[in-house]
Computed example of a mutant assay.
Amino acid sequence: MGSGTLKGRASAGTGDPEDLTAEQVRTLLNVADGATANASDTYLLNRANHSGTQAISTVAGLQDALDSKAPAALGVNTQTGANYTLQLTDRNSVVNRNSGSSNTTTVPPNSAVAFPVGSTVVIHQLGTGASSIVAGAGVTIRKRANRNLTLSGQYALATLVKIGTDEWVCSGDLEAV
């Protein structure tokens, strides 16, 4: 038989490779014409040598890494009682103090609630009752010298930022001393 035939055999694996044309071998192996058969792994792994797009889901861990970098929407925790002590779930969230009576929000010591340094909590006086922030045992809350830790009225906001193990800074719409 001439070049380009399988000599009548049932499969190409039973014949001599020289019995097939190069085009037939590529077809059987599903390799396109012009494919780079001998490129090094370094070349093939270099993204600069590729075009097109790749779905995020095909890169292990990429979506989680991106999510950890993007700012998340603040959670909201509405409290109506007279006293509330911050919980770890309040980290990077807004605590609404919705009461017609005076109320306090306590910042607990690290030994009770271990907020990571850099955590923020926004206190929002949603109700008409005066909302105050108090330091738990061993906690220091820093603020401007001419302010106290009572929000200035309904709809006022104050932000707490943890700057040390038992040290926070509070800034926002606080009453003047």
Rank of each mutant, 00 (worst) to 15 (best):
L174W: 05
N103S: 10
G75I: 01
R142K: 15
L149N: 04
V25M: 13
A72Y: 00
N110L: 05
V25W: 14
D33S: 03
N83F: 09
G34A: 00
S3M: 03
T159S: 13
G127E: 12
L149R: 02
A32D: 08
H124W: 07
D67W: 04
V113W: 09
L20V: 09
S171T: 02
G13F: 12
Y84P: 06
R97W: 05
D64I: 05
S102A: 15
A72L: 12
E167R: 02
R9N: 15
A145N: 00
S40W: 08
D33I: 04
N96H: 10
G100A: 15
G81H: 00
T58D: 07
A130R: 06
T14I: 15
T21G: 13
V94H: 04
A65R: 14
T85I: 01
R91Q: 15
V25G: 04
G2C: 01
A12M: 05
D33W: 03
Q63K: 06
V139K: 03
G8R: 07
K143R: 14
Q87M: 11
G61W: 05
K69I: 03
V25S: 11
I123L: 14
V121R: 01
A32L: 05
V169Q: 04
D173C: 05
I133G: 04
V177M: 14
A176F: 11
V121G: 00
Q87C: 03
A73G: 14
S11E: 03
P109G: 02
A65P: 08
N103M: 01
G13K: 14
Y84I: 09
